[in-house]
Design a protein around this nucleic acid. Structure first.
Lengths: 343, 343
DNA sequence: CTGTTAGCGCGTTCAA
DNA sequence: TTGAACGCGCTAACAG
């Protein structure tokens, strides 16, 4: 076929072949096909007619730039790497989708690494930004090493401190405080429905706000208003029953899980108690199931978390390599979503 | 810090810095750190002591090769790209896991592209092999274009013909034939539980084997033994009930879905019919749920599919670039797994 | 046997 | 608009 034209030893079409075909230098081709063609401040003054010819040649030859070669010069891969541990988790899918939406229009491709073992891969593979959703205990040093290598990391973690990398946190605590305040505005007899573990550990995010709320309001902590359950739906339902099936029952329930809150609502309905009137219920997690149930569940959850994560990731990916190597923390306080179960 | 030693303008440690620190040339470093150091036929004669010094230097500096730079010379990315459309599907997770297991020990990293729009990305991004799990109607040409670019593609599709790329098929048909034969060995009154769609289209894979089986056995097609359902579990359960809750009920059910087969078993149990004795049931899909239920479900499914897919992918990734650009078809006939629901 | 020199590959980008 | 250097690692050819 084309034995005299280019140099098609490899299947790949190079910039050189395009240049030859268009009758220009490789530099012009590069200017037109990648960087600014007719806009640039300095250079890039490529006659629009030449530009057209170049683009035609590229099209005809089916040229596509070799990103590896480009990367070596520019330092950019036009790629964002997402290291996700639990790919089956809807959470991971939400991350992917959000980043996808932000990045693709800018020509940045999100790639997923489905492996808890990011440390090994990220050492050699490059990306304009990397997201890591799980850091084991000993791995803190590896993060710092990667950061020193100039890698742009965004790490999802509740405690880790940023050392050259960005940290993003999803904080349930503030939202739980809001939930309690919401109930305290109208109620005095507020029960809690929580896990055994949260109570034992005095979980600062989900359990303590209950105690603090009562204390600040000058209300007593009543043992009989404290019900715990262990995972199973049955157990949560039973716990709610214990709470509600008594003469002096609470007028509000603060459940540390949406799922528990839903059980509580079911229990109440079973007892003929009208949720939203005789009983207010709030949950934690702001799940879709809670929002969909009747009455819709008032709950707390992170809002816009995925979008913000995507924004940060893309921002860091675009930021020049020498740029802000600050490494900060972005905290994501959960917020209250008032719905029918507790107006 | 190290202003006099290397050239650390960028955060990245290069082979040059390692060379300088070890007091050798970059060639030696390259030989030691990547290719064969003391084995090679020709060159590679690096004294083991020097090799140690080089490795130490690399270690101290935290050197990691730039894969992009390496790729440009070797043409290899040490990466396999998996374009997966339905990441939430267990099927996709199985693909990932299988490839992971095969590839990682060989130093090949699987990367996932969570985007139906592979055509755009794959044009510029490189990988030693690429897997595509979904091809839309118009996209056939794009596959060929990519193949011409020298890209190694493995495409999962039932009909597409290989043109420069590999095609892998998962064929339910043969398995369904086996399932019917299994039932025909012991039964004469065999019912089918299938979807409305499969019946209308006379699905060659899952529906026709039922008709053909009856015909070959010289059995009549009885309308009352043909029950259809539409998606919902409820619907499948009801259809099974219609089949079983009659005087002259079938002694075997061929269900075109594991999920429907499970509904049938439930229905039978509800009616006091002992599955595996009074009634044999086979499903299609060979899901884990079916295997786990009691009685365990006899079913047909692809065996070793994911492993084989992974093998092909890795093989193609390792194969030299000029190598077998054959492009063949690998068919994966489903097989019968006999369990308690139909011995 | 051990090690070095030098050029390559591809797209970018400066200086002319 | 272009020639040529450049970035990084690989590797053929060559020299102790």
């Amino acid at each position: 076929m084309n034995s005299a034209s280019g140099a098609p030893r490899s299947g790949r079409v190079t910039i050189k072949q395009v240049a030859q075909r268009a009758g220009v230098s490789t530099a012009s081709v590069s200017y037109v096909l990648s960087g600014r063609s007719g806009i640039a401040g300095r250079n890039g003054g490529v006659a629009s007619e030449t530009a057209v010819r170049i683009r035609e040649a590229a099209e005809e030859l089916g040229y596509a730039p070799d990103l590896a070669a480009r990367k070596i010069r520019t330092g950019r891969t036009e790629t964002i790497l997402l290291s996700l541990t639990m790919l089956s988790d809807p959470w991971a899918l939400a991350v992917i989708e959000a980043v996808q939406r932000r990045a693709m229009p800018l020509g940045i491709t999100p790639m997923i690494l489905a492996d808890a073992d990011w440390a090994r891969v990220l050492k050699t593979h490059d990306a304009d930004a990397m997201f890591i959703d799980a850091v084991a205990d000993g791995q803190q040093g590896e993060l710092e090493a990667l950061a020193r290598q100039g890698k742009k990391l965004v790490v999802f973690h509740e405690q880790i401190e940023p050392r050259g990398f960005e940290v993003i946190r999803s904080l349930a605590g503030p939202g739980c405080v809001l939930a309690m305040e919401h109930l305290l505005a109208k109620h005095q007899k507020i029960a809690i429905l929580t896990t055994e573990r949260a109570r034992e550990n005095r979980d600062p995010a989900r359990f303590l706000p209950y105690l603090d709320g009562l204390r600040r309001a000058g209300l007593p902590l009543r043992e009989e208003y404290l019900a715990t359950f262990d995972r199973s739906p049955v157990s949560a339902y039973a716990a709610a029953m214990r709470l509600l099936d008594r003469p002096d029952r609470p007028t509000a329930i603060y459940a540390t899980t949406d799922f528990a809150a839903m059980s509580a609502i079911n229990a109440a309905q079973r007892l003929g108690i009208t949720v939203g009137e005789d009983l207010d219920v709030v949950g934690v997690g702001n799940t879709l199931e809670g929002e969909a149930m009747a009455p819709s569940l008032t709950s707390v959850g992170p809002v816009g978390f995925f979008d913000e994560l995507a924004r940060i990731l893309v921002e860091r990916a675009l930021g020049g390599s020498e740029n802000s190597v600050t490494g900060g923390v972005v905290e994501f306080p959960w917020q209250l979503f008032i719905r029918d179960s507790a107006r």
